[in-house]
Structures are given as C-alpha cells and as structure tokens.
Nucleic acid binder design. Structure first.
Length: 584
RNA sequence: GGCCCCGUAGCUCAAUUGGAUAGAGCACCUGCCUUCUAAGCAGGUUGUUGCAGGUUCGAGUCCUGCCGGGGUCGCCA
C-alpha cells in the first residue's frame, strides 16, 4: 500500500463530502492539492496543503476550510489526530496499529513491494550509453550507463513498460577510421611491417585481434588492395566486433539493452529521407544561410546556403542544418529520423541520457521531437556530469594519447559492479562526482555501499540467530505474518516501519522526476535508521531483536526487521546491486 | 559574446519538484568497548542557501539582472 496515495483518497472523499454539504463550492480544481510527509516529524505523519490551495478559489479563509476538512478526516478510525498548523496545513497522525499493519503488506509482497501502477500500458523508451562502436567502454561512459540503467529499472518499478535502447553510431566517418585502423592490423597479421600508427587512426591494442580474425578468414586477399575493395566488409566486421566488446563490457556492469538501433539502417532503409520529406511537407525545412555565431566568429566561417530545420520555431535558438556541404545527411538529420521511429513505435515518453559535453544538443532534439510528435511526446534529456577519479585522495591522471585511460572493465574488476553502480548514483546526475577507489572499498559508515549492504546482512544475521535461539520458530516471511505486532511499542520501531512504508511513494516521485539517485539516498537513510535501532541493544538489552525466553516478541521484531531487508533488497534491485546476506 | 548546467555548514553533498524551524556524513567538542549486538555508538556545535530585485498565503526551489566555476557554440558524433 502507498500510504500517501491512500490518504489522498481519504482527503478527496473529505473534500467531496464538504462539497456535498455546501461547505465548499463544487467544481474546484484539485490539481494542486498534495499529500506528503512533513519534514518535521512533530508535524505528524502526513500533511496536506488542501486548505491553502483551495482558499482563494473557494473564497474562504484557509483555516476555516482546514478545520472543516480536519473534522471530516477525524471520522476515520486510523486517524488519531488531525491538527491545523501554520497558515492552514492539515497535519494528520495515524494510529500505530495502522503503521504496524504495513509489516504484513511488505512481507507478503516481498521485493515487489513498492511497485507502482502507472497508467496501463504506458510505454517509456530510455536511451543510454550509445557509445561509438570504435573501442572498449572507458570510465567516462560508466556514469551514463549506470544512471540510464537505474532510471530504466526505476520506471519499470513504477509500473511503466520500459524499453532500454542503445543507438549505434555506425554510419559516420569514425567508422571509416575504425575500418582503416583494423585494415592495418589485418596487414600486420599477414606479416607486413606497417611502421608506426599514423595520427588520426585508432592505436588501441584491442584492434589486433580483430585484424587477426580477418586475416584468418580472408588470407592475403586484401593485401595491397584499394579501400573500395575492403572498406565495406571491414566496416561491418569491425563494428560488429566492437559492439560485441561493448556488450560484454555492459554485461560486466549488469546492463542489457533490449534494442540496439543502427544508425546505418536508418540511412539504408531510406528512413532519413522519408522523415525529412515529411518535415518538408509540414513546412519545417528550408534552404537558408545561418548567421555567424554571436561574439567570437570562427576563423573559417563563411555564409553558405544550407538545408535547415526550423528548430527555432520549436524553442531552439537557431535553425539547424540537416545536410552537409557534400549533400549527405548530418548526424542530426539521422537522429530526427531515429526519434521519429521511436515515436511511431508508440513511445510518447522518451528519455535520453547523455554526457554533459552534449548539453548543447538538447534544445535541438527537444525541438525536433516537438515537431515530429506534434507536441504530443514527453521528452526528457538527462545529462551526466563528469566523474573525477581518485585513489586515496589523489586524482588519477588519464590521457588517451598516452594510453593511460581507465576502462570500464578495470573499474569493475577492481571494486565490483555493485559498488560501482551504487557510487555512481550517490550524486544527482547533473553534479560532478568524485569516485575514490579507496573509499569504495572502505568498510565504514562513510561508504554508503558498504553501509547499506551491511544493514541487509545484519538483518539476515539476526534472523539466523533467532533461529538458533528458538529452534522451533519459523522465520520465513510467510510464517511471520501472524506475529503479534502489537508487541512493537517503542518509538524507534514505529519510526522504522514508517520509513519502510515510505518506499512506494519514493519510487513514484523519483520515477516521475527521473532521478534514480533518490533511491540510493533513501536506502542510506533506511540503513542508518536500522543500524541506529540495532545499536540501541548495546546499552539496553531489552531492545535487542532476539529476547531470550520471549519468542513472541522476538518474532514481532524479526518481522519488523525483515521488512527492512525486503525494502533494501527491493531498492538495491532498482539500482542493480545484489544484496548480501553476510559481509566478508 | 550566445546558450546549457552548477553555486547550500569549514569539507563532500541532501532537501519530498512551491511547503512549515534548510538536513545528513566528514571534521570539531563531550561521554562510552573486562560484561553486552562496537568493521563503532550516543549526544552537542555548525547557515545572510553567491548577490540584488520580482512573482504569492509561502521561494534553496519559479522569473529578471549581475558575480563566480564548468561545458558548449554552422558540415564531427
């Protein structure tokens, strides 16, 4: 049960009944009415701004409205207090029994607890990674990969039908460069001494194996041949090889896309042309000359007629070119066609996760999506800021040219996929993030990954110990359903179940906001509150989970802490992290 | 110069997307490990939310203008 959604329905009912009695006028816009947890627990369990929002349209004093609604809400058995505070907030407090009744909710639903019910069949497309297929994934790709994947999981948890998608940039000039680089490796594999790798080609060792495979298959057939003989087959082969490597890298991070969409296929099937024809028919395309950029004009700038998309009609600053001077399509043109394809496939909710260096690209894509969807698609571009790497406080220096850049694989091998993922979500995506290898491996409260995992393991350890203390006691979640929860009386125990019960709402709000990092912060807070309860047993043995000779109290407490483990596992699943049953 | 992102406690960051007295961790101060669930715990201190206006019942959050940091700027992807 989403407690807050539940009380929203109670509140709606109260408002309706007030309207029926004539205490409130009918036909009010209830859109701005919210039910949310107050920051200050002294303000109760849930608060609503209903009276504040309705005061003006109803033409009444907010406190009068609040008094009226509070009186109606008090009639509900679960409501033990409904107070008016501040300018007209309605603060509700619920009976402990109501909160304790969430324990069986959680235990019954298991890790599925918190799942939302978005509008039926609501489809969302999340595009992330989309790294160029020219080499292995490096550490700079990791954040976008993790953020995109966790966001996809989060939306799925919230009830959307999610498609995870990767756009393969296999049509540009960089693929020609890749092919030439591989061709050299092929020649080397056939025994040629090619000398130093010239500037502008990819020098990485990862291409050696690709060249060798080609040599095995084709022998000497391509030696001393012009580009038009081998270019196309090597492009295809190398792209496929790079994508295999990237898929392996992603798998190491626990990421699997449902759709890999080839840019080249758009060109080959004529979809780019089709889309542009459509745009032209709508009057969104024209031949024109762009103004030079304001301020600093590039050296080689000269006015030139181009095929332009009227992006400025849809909120962009300037119109954007669709064709290069040689007549071929720009990357942007293909990207419009790609998004058109997404829209046609039924996605009117699309998310794109990009690196911050592409920030300038957002406005034109938003404009394009507005144009192709007639304003009907919800489109959100999320940017991931830079990750700075540290080792024990010292920045890690990387240089692509010197070959000292760190690959995704190296990071995962050193600290583990789960830790990498969690750390990448400990900042909101548009803030820069410091990633310290030492910190990630540290076993302390300062390391959120460890702290959350430790909480989960601690619950499991306590359950194991309960079994030892009461060999006859059944401790499976299903068996705990009939525990006597009325034995849970301390303030901290009630506070803990309240925190657990906040999970469904957190899923909902974080999903709507497209902010997976909120899950990580919530899990840290939940772990913290659990550890705190656990520690109370240090000074006060009667507060321990396992009370010798008191099986019913032990069962009740085990039921409570199991809800913590269930929600931790549920949240970790969203982040793509395996929960641990014991620490080593 | 245009556009985008960021600016919150000494440090690293949150803040329920417009809610009430802006919160955590680190650091700092106090107390605590023969026994007990200590890869530590409990408590305490910490603010002109970069600056100046505006919008309204109410602003860290929205609008305008500045200041500072980063990114980006017609054919790359």
């Amino acid at each position: 049960m989403n407690v807050f959604a539940h009380f929203k329905t109670l509140l709606d009912a109260a408002i309706k009944s007030a309207q029926a009695d004539g205490a409130l006028p009918s036909g009010l816009d209830l859109h701005a009415v919210t039910v949310e947890p107050p920051r200050d627990p002294a303000h109760g369990d849930v608060a609503s701004n209903a009276a504040l929002v309705l005061a003006k349209p109803a033409g009444k004093n907010p406190r009068a409205i609040a008094e009226d609604l509070a009186a109606r809400l008090r009639e509900n058995d679960d409501v033990v207090a409904a107070e008016i505070a501040g300018p007209g907030f309605i603060n509700l407090r619920f009976a402990d029994d109501f909160w304790l009744a969430r324990i069986p909710d959680v235990l019954k639903e298991g890790v599925g607890y918190g799942a939302g019910v978005a509008i039926e069949g609501q489809k969302v497309n999340v595009e992330y990674v989309s790294a160029n297929p020219t080499g292995p994934m490096h550490v700079g790709h990791v954040r976008g990969a993790v953020v995109g994947d966790a966001l996809a999981n989060l939306l799925e948890k919230a009830g959307y039908a999610v498609t995870r998608e990767y756009y393969i940039n296999d049509a540009g000039a960089q693929i020609d460069v890749l092919a030439r680089s591989v061709y050299r490796r092929y020649c080397e594999a056939r025994g040629r001494d090619m000398g130093a790798i010239p500037e502008g080609l990819y020098p990485g060792d990862y291409l050696i194996g690709v060249g060798e495979k080609l040599a095995d298959i084709h022998g000497d057939a391509w030696l001393d041949q012009p580009e038009d003989v081998w270019m196309q087959p090597i492009r295809d082969f190398a792209t496929e090889a790079m994508m295999d490597m990237i898929r392996d890298d992603l798998a190491a991070l626990g990421i699997r896309h449902e759709v890999f969409f080839s840019e080249r296929s758009l060109h080959q099937s004529g979809r780019v042309e089709e889309t542009l024809n459509w745009l032209e028919k709508e009057g969104f395309v024209y031949e024109g000359v762009l103004e030079p950029p304001k301020g600093k004009t590039p050296q080689d700038w000269e006015p030139r007629p181009q095929t332009l998309f009227r992006a400025s009609q849809f909120g962009d600053d300037v119109d954007r070119p669709l064709k290069k001077s040689d007549g071929s399509y720009t990357y942007f043109a293909a990207d419009i066609a790609y998004h058109y394809d997404k829209f046609v496939r039924g996605f009117n909710h699309m998310v794109l996760v990009l690196g911050a260096d592409h920030a300038g690209y957002a406005k034109r894509m938003e404009a394009a999506v507005k144009a192709i969807s007639g304003g009907k698609a919800f489109y959100d571009v999320r940017f991931c800021q830079l990750v700075r790497l540290f080792r024990g406080g010292e920045p890690v220096k990387m240089s692509k040219r010197a070959g000292t850049f760190i690959t995704l694989r190296e990071v995962v091998d050193e600290v583990g996929a789960g830790a990498v993922r969690f750390m990448m979500l400990m900042r909101k995506n548009d803030a820069t993030l410091d990633f310290d290898f030492a910190k990630v491996k540290e076993q302390s409260r300062d390391n959120a990954v460890f702290y959350v995992q430790y909480a989960h393991a601690r619950v499991q350890s306590a359950v194991r110990k309960a079994c030892e203390a009461f060999p006859d006691m059944a401790t499976e979640d299903a068996a705990l359903l009939d525990a006597d929860l009325s034995l849970l009386k301390t303030e901290s125990e009630i506070a803990l179940i309240k925190r657990v019960a906040a999970w469904p709402r957190l899923v909902e709000t974080a999903a709507i906001a497209h902010e997976p990092h909120r899950v990580a912060f919530y899990l840290y807070d939940l772990a913290s509150e659990f550890h705190s309860l656990y520690n109370q047993g240090n000074d006060r043995p009667e507060r321990r989970f396992i009370i010798e000779g008191n099986e019913s109290l032990t069962r009740a407490r085990v039921a409570l802490i199991r809800t913590v483990a269930v929600v931790l596992a549920s949240g970790l699943a969203v982040l793509g992290v395996e929960p641990l049953d014991e620490m080593h």
